[in-house]
């Protein structure tokens, strides 16, 4: 009962399971203030959705999720459009490239492997980083003074790059090459992993583009919205892997979950929850890694991403 046939995935799913998955990811998103795209695709894979369909449909879901977010931040004046458009140009180029990579690997029969290995690496990196950071934050009860440092090599490199322009909203001067290159990188990951890339884009904006935090989230959402629009259309046209019914159920679940998450987050301690999220991310990573390390139950797979 309550099964829904997904013609793109070629199988049926339990609506409540998918809705609940969207809800749980949305809940985590609301509690921790991070995007849930990087958890959604692995969870879909675990319930039997083919990895290529899971990643493409998740991109479609992110289009809806980031639309409301972008609108809210636009109203607050927290979107740096100049930076966002440059990141977007890179994101569209990267997304298009990523879709073509998936197409080639799908024909060769290894798109699923690339998606899984990229997830293992990214989840491993993010999970370990979050775990260590929140552990350190729990241990440090008093804030320590940070000694002023001289200009870093990275800062010097940034100044040497050509085509420097000033971004008023973010109050930084940068070469236009930086957002273009970083946007391309995130766009490739968005296509391969089916994520908006917020969990990479936010640290990139803070640490590499030196943008102030209040502008980062709004601009990231703006860029992600259009990157995922491009990825969704490209995946639909090139790989026929977008299941918008699946995306809509996930969107409904994640939006509701995010509201509850936001309420819960006000009542709980941040660093302890961060460790829990890091643990969850690492559990998902280990599950996917085991799938790559342990001898498969069946030694054959359909060619062309079945």
């Amino acid at each position: 009962m309550w099964h829904l046939y997904l013609p793109i995935a070629g199988s049926s799913v339990n609506v409540f399971v998918i809705f609940a998955m969207g809800g749980v990811v949305g809940l985590l998103s609301g509690i921790f203030g991070v995007g849930g795209g990087f958890l959604m695709t692995p969870l879909l894979i675990m319930v039997g959705i083919p990895p290529t369909v899971a990643a493409a449909s998740d991109s479609n879901q992110i289009v809806g999720a980031s639309t409301s977010g972008t609108l809210a931040h636009y109203r607050l004046g927290n979107v740096d459009f100049k930076m966002g458009i440059l990141l977007l140009i890179g994101g569209v180029a990267g997304g298009t490239l990523g879709v073509q990579i998936i197409k080639i690997l799908r024909d060769l029969g290894n798109a699923d492997f690339l998606i899984k290995i990229t997830y293992v690496l990214m989840l491993g990196f993010v999970g370990i980083y979050m775990f260590i950071e929140s552990l350190q934050a729990l241990r440090k009860k008093e804030p320590q003074e940070v000694a002023p440092r001289g200009e870093s090599k990275y800062s010097k490199l940034l100044k040497k790059l050509p085509w420097q322009i000033y971004f008023e909203k973010s109050a930084v001067e940068l070469s236009i090459l930086m957002p273009l290159i970083l946007g391309t990188f995130v766009g490739i990951l968005a296509a391969i992993m089916g994520v908006g890339g917020g969990f990479i884009m936010v640290p990139v904006m803070v640490y590499l583009l030196r943008m102030p935090m209040h502008v980062v989230v709004g601009t990231s959402l703006f860029q992600i919205l259009f990157t995922c629009v491009n990825v969704t259309i490209m995946q639909a046209r090139t790989n026929h892997t977008v299941d918008f019914i699946l995306a809509l159920i996930l969107l409904l679940g994640s939006t509701l979950g995010a509201q509850f998450g936001a309420m819960i987050s006000k009542k709980l301690k941040g660093d302890q929850l961060k460790i829990l999220l890091a643990s969850l991310v690492l559990v998902v990573m280990v599950k996917m890694l085991l799938g790559l390390l342990l001898t498969p139950h069946i030694m054959l797979a359909y060619q062309g991403g079945h």
């Binding site: 998103s29 639309t67 639909a236």
Partner: peptide
């Protein structure tokens, strides 16, 4: 698929008055 997702996102945004959205 993208237009439907955008409309759904906007409706969700209005219903929940500007949720930050997961990404």
């Amino acid at each position: 698929a993208t237009v439907i997702a955008i409309i759904a996102g906007l409706i969700m945004g209005v219903v929940f008055k500007g949720g930050k959205g997961g990404h």
